[in-house]
């Protein structure tokens, strides 16, 4: 996968933050997403996806939703959206607000299957970092250069994290935790959990695994299978 196969941008929509409306924040700065496209995206989001709907459950991530308006030729655009609780806004008449944070992801058409295969993976990375964007110093009507700068850094980081993770997930395709040589080649935090998981080849109840983050990572890499059984959700080492 080439390093510019995926791009990420972020848009914030503050539903009770009248004067600012949907606001394009920044992008991973690769090639295709420009501030113009970002603003277009921001505007489109309101119409296309009806995002910013305040009844959406906080911190649940939706997507990927196709964004045909932003797709062209070899590139497809999808977005993930997350409603989040806004920090108190000093100087604003609103002490707290609720908003939506939208990540749009643009990637090459031929990567479509990968993006869908690794939806869990992308989701968990976005979720892990969505609250890193802090708008608590935002005053009505503008987003400060500091916040913009911090957002750009964050998106660049997300961009490389997602790229690396997809690359690894591809590499791990067909691998098995019961191949001990492979198991020990996993990073420490994963191999620690993996060593526990293989002790029960028939699977583990969700409640018996406390390290949910790494479990989700193993799941997204295809090294753990999720199964709905009569007595709840089980995770089976592959």
């Amino acid at each position: 996968m080439t390093s510019d196969a995926i791009e990420i941008s972020a848009v914030i929509l503050l539903s009770n933050f009248q004067s600012i409306g949907p606001f394009y924040i920044s992008d991973s700065g690769v090639i295709r997403i420009t501030p113009d496209i970002g603003m277009l995206l921001a505007a489109r989001l309101v119409i296309t996806a009806g995002i910013g709907n305040t009844s959406a459950k906080t911190e649940e991530l939706y997507g990927p939703l196709p964004m045909p308006e932003l797709s062209d030729g070899d590139y497809l655009s999808y977005l993930f959206s997350m409603s989040m609780q806004q920090q108190p806004i000093p100087g604003s008449s609103f002490s707290t607000g609720k908003g939506s944070l939208i990540f749009s992801i643009v990637f090459e058409d031929k990567l479509k299957d990968k993006i869908y295969n690794h939806k869990n993976l992308i989701e968990s990375i976005l979720r892990e970092h969505s609250s890193d964007l802090n708008f608590s110093n935002t005053v009505t009507g503008m987003i400060s250069p500091e916040i913009k700068g911090a957002s750009e850094e964050l998106l660049k980081m997300l961009y490389s994290k997602i790229n690396n993770a997809i690359e690894l997930a591809e590499k791990y395709r067909g691998a098995s935790l019961f191949d001990i040589g492979f198991l020990v080649s996993l990073p420490d935090e994963l191999n620690f959990l993996a060593k526990k998981l293989i002790q029960q080849p028939n699977g583990w109840r969700e409640k018996d695994i406390s390290d949910k983050d790494n479990l989700m990572t193993l799941l997204s890499y295809g090294l753990v299978r999720k199964e709905n059984r009569e007595d709840g959700i089980w995770f089976i080492p592959v």
Partner: peptide, 14 residues
């Protein structure tokens, strides 16, 4: 093959 041994470990633990 590698796969034989992965299955073997799984079965052994069972």
């Amino acid at each position: 093959a590698d796969n034989w041994w992965k299955k073997a470990l799984q079965k052994a633990i069972v």
